[in-house]
């Protein structure tokens, strides 16, 4: 019995590790490739491990016609803007839905959630016209506005859920002490609901950092491009020749912040994903 158990244990480790290697393979090879010299990247047969390590690909990210560091800054601005706007809106609404009864509250909540069922891709054509009328085409502000709409239903859902489980006794105690409803939100609710805040933040941040189609449509001048869009200009390359070093370094700059954020906070990310999609 003991032997069979350990044998199946070994095969479990083998299968799981094999899957892990396959899944990690693209991430590892692009990291390695981003430190290779341009000569090595163009030699045949291709290598996996760099023969010579260089930072040239990262240093040169802003020296080509497409400035990747500038795009990293744009992506940061859009991500912070989306997180801030959606969190403010979702915190207020989550508080309202979780803790107060008003006429039509159930329907209002359903309407907010039902927006999740509309494919974002289908809404981009009319959204373009709406933003055009506001003068927000080719603007990072316009991008923040539509990304916020995209993440709102999920963030509201997460915030409402975490605020619903705060014990009523704590709120009653604060009310008796004469604390106003809005101050209760800041002093009682938010300190207790920070796991929900982290989940909502991660969700909004990953979406805004990585979104491709909307940014491709709304941004037209290169100095406004976000990271996923600037990569398209690197893919085309100058003189039809792709600079694989720059492209791979660009991919790494786009993916590494997401991976680090996820690895640091994965517990909250996972619980947020599960609470948002199951139930």
């Amino acid at each position: 019995m003991m032997k069979r158990l350990s044998l199946s244990n070994v095969s479990w480790w083998v299968v799981c590790s094999a899957l892990a290697i396959i899944i990690l393979f693209p991430i590892i090879v692009v990291l390695l490739a981003s430190f290779k010299t341009i000569g090595e990247l163009n030699t045949y047969p291709p290598t996996i491990w760099p023969n010579e390590v260089t930072l040239r690909n990262y240093v040169d990210l802003d020296s080509t016609s497409a400035n990747v560091w500038r795009s990293a800054w744009n992506s940061t601005v859009v991500t912070l803007g989306t997180v801030a706007l959606s969190l403010v809106l979702a915190t207020l609404a989550g508080y309202g839905f979780a803790r107060f009864k008003f006429r039509g509250d159930g329907i209002a909540f359903l309407v907010v959630l039902a927006t999740m069922m509309m494919p974002f891709q289908a809404l981009l054509t009319p959204l373009f016209v709406v933003l055009q009328s506001m003068g927000l085409i080719d603007s990072l502000v316009g991008l923040v506005l539509i990304y916020t709409m995209y993440v709102l239903p999920f963030t509201i859902f997460v915030m409402r859920n975490s605020m619903s489980v705060v014990p009523q006794a704590l709120i009653d105690a604060a009310t008796v002490d004469g604390v106003s409803r809005l101050r209760i939100l800041g002093t009682v609710m938010l300190p207790l609901c920070w796991p929900g805040v982290v989940s909502a933040t991660l969700f909004a941040a990953f979406m805004a950092w990585n979104e491709f189609l909307g940014a491709l449509i709304l941004l037209s001048s290169q100095e406004n491009f976000t990271l996923p869009v600037i990569l398209t200009t690197l893919q085309t390359g100058r003189y039809g020749q792709i600079d694989w070093g720059i492209l791979n370094a660009g991919v790494v700059v786009t993916m590494v912040p997401c991976l680090l954020l996820y690895l640091a906070l994965q517990r909250y990310y996972v619980s947020g994903l599960l609470s948002g999609s199951i139930r």
């Binding site: 899944i23 693209p26 990247l41 990953f206 491709f212 694989w244 786009t254 993916m255 997401c258 996820y262």
Partner: peptide
């Protein structure tokens, strides 16, 4: 196993664009 999910489809697609390249890819 969840790591690739947090990367965007955009950057993932560019990563694979290089990875399957016949002359230089991994």
């Amino acid at each position: 196993y969840l790591m690739p999910y947090v990367m965007g489809f955009g950057s993932s697609a560019f990563l694979w664009y290089w990875m399957v390249d016949d002359r230089t890819g991994a």
